[in-house]
Design a binder for these strands. Structure first.
Lengths: 145, 145
DNA sequence: CCTTGACCTAAAGTTAGGTTTAGGTATTAC
DNA sequence: GTAATACCTAAACCTAACTTTAGGTCAAGG
């Protein structure tokens, strides 16, 4: 069993955040000892899942629903599985988006690197076709090899 | 030249958002024709960059600074390059984090799939070592091959 | 003429996810 | 016994990024 202060250190989260999560119902089966929160293994694992679901883009109120399903027992396995499948798809989609962003960023790095060398971006401005269906990565990699 | 309505359609963004971006100084060289905004190629490219920088996690006020550098001219090439390098690093770090999240999600999918098959998660609960330094991907892939 | 549609502004409202404040309890350290 | 810690609550506050509201201009169509 851990105190809120120990959890705060372990997860590197402010105490206020842990209390906020509790208030929002993210630890539905947490016990208290004369008012003081008792974080057990269940809550440690819950917090790991909270961080995962948050990173995946899930809102607090939906994380709460999940935690309630966990308390409900085996009847909710299917819902829980479905939730994780949906989150998996969302993260995969976000990674594709981020990869596109990364390509654009790499292109811009190359662009300004070249502009600095040239002392001007005038030649560059015309080079780039509208909407960039160029293989940006290739341009960048060539510039760096 | 495009109207705000045309830009809204092209980028699939609400008109209110475009006006908000303008108010926040994200189109510092945009012209007006008797009060009406005139979006030119400069603004189209600006909006592409705005979306990229936003996805990369940059705040509006910092995007504004970048747009001002663009107006300032060649003296700010180095700053602009630095900004993109920093964003690139941030996105790369986020992708690593997302990959970890994805591994956790895959594990949880496998976990509930197995729990459904078993009718219970009791056997599973003990199997998972604290903190999961398991090769989750391998477990999942095995379960799916 | 008058109404419809596309534009405009300033200012207030909204939402998520916390953080801060103000005041209180309980245990340990000197 | 009193002072420093670590915990508690309720409620107010905060920030970013929008969105909504209320009221106004202007041009084209019937």
């Amino acid at each position: 069993m851990y105190t809120i202060g120990q959890m705060s250190e372990m997860f590197n989260l402010p105490i206020s955040t842990l209390r906020y999560y509790d208030k929002e119902g993210l630890f539905p089966s947490m016990q208290r000892q004369s008012g003081v929160r008792q974080f057990g293994e269940t809550e440690v694992e819950a917090l790991r899942v909270i961080e995962c679901l948050k990173t995946s883009g899930l809102e607090i109120k939906d994380i709460k629903k999940f935690m309630e399903w966990c308390v409900e027992g085996p009847t909710t396995y299917a819902q829980r599985k479905e939730l994780f499948e949906t989150r998996k798809a969302a993260v995969e989609a976000e990674m594709i988006q981020l990869q596109k962003t990364l390509d654009m960023l790499k292109f811009k790095c190359w662009y300004y690197e070249t502009a600095i060398k040239n002392g001007s971006e005038d030649k560059l401005k015309d080079m780039i076709p509208d909407g960039l269906p160029i293989d940006i990565k290739k341009m960048y990699d060539n510039a760096h090899s």
